[in-house]
Amino acid sequence: MNIFRLTGDLSHLAAIIILLLKIWKSRSCAGISGKSQILFALVFTTRYLDLFTSFISLYNTCMKLIYIGCAYATVYLIYAKFRATYDGNHDSFRVEFLVVPVGGLSVLINHDFSPLEILWTFSIYLESVAILPQLFMISKTGEAETITTHYLFCLGLYRALYLFNWIWRFYFEGFFDMIAIVAGVVQTVLYCDFFYLYVTKVLKGKKLSLPA
């Protein structure tokens, strides 16, 4: 555990909680892509199956349970409790264009051809692109609520911090994982355009709106 890893985890946790609280407090999931949230629930489910097979630490187990629990709670709020506020017409990204290629890639490029290992790889690849339906939705409506941009910033920052964590681990532990690194770079790059808008607009007190 190094400082980048810990702050990355906390940034990820902050993102998840911000989104849950935003929906709960406003009693609305307007502007939130339910499809991205289903993909994140799928990511956590396929990655954390090792909860049943191995124990790493109390921290590890607790965080996994919190992430999974929050992911399913978010999906429940969007598709059940506050379904009337869900903006399905603008959430029109075709997720099969992500899930099918990612599934194929995880079968082809993995560390070990075993069910758990393929599912872990699938979760890493899927996480890298799971935010696309949300970014697509924002580009379609041309705007995002400020609280939604805080969520996206924390979510993007998390993987960027993990990149520094992996650099740290390579130098101090001689340890790297090419699958995670390549997927993590892709994931972080997808946020770059958003990071730019966040710094130039939201942090200066303006609402995030895209030119028509």
Binding site: I56, M63, H111, W120, W166, G174, F176, D177, M178, A180
Partner: peptide, 10 residues
């Protein structure tokens, strides 16, 4: 370096 899984990460 070793190319192995980051199973201790989240």
């Amino acid at each position: 370096g070793t190319d192995s899984n980051l199973k201790d990460e989240l």
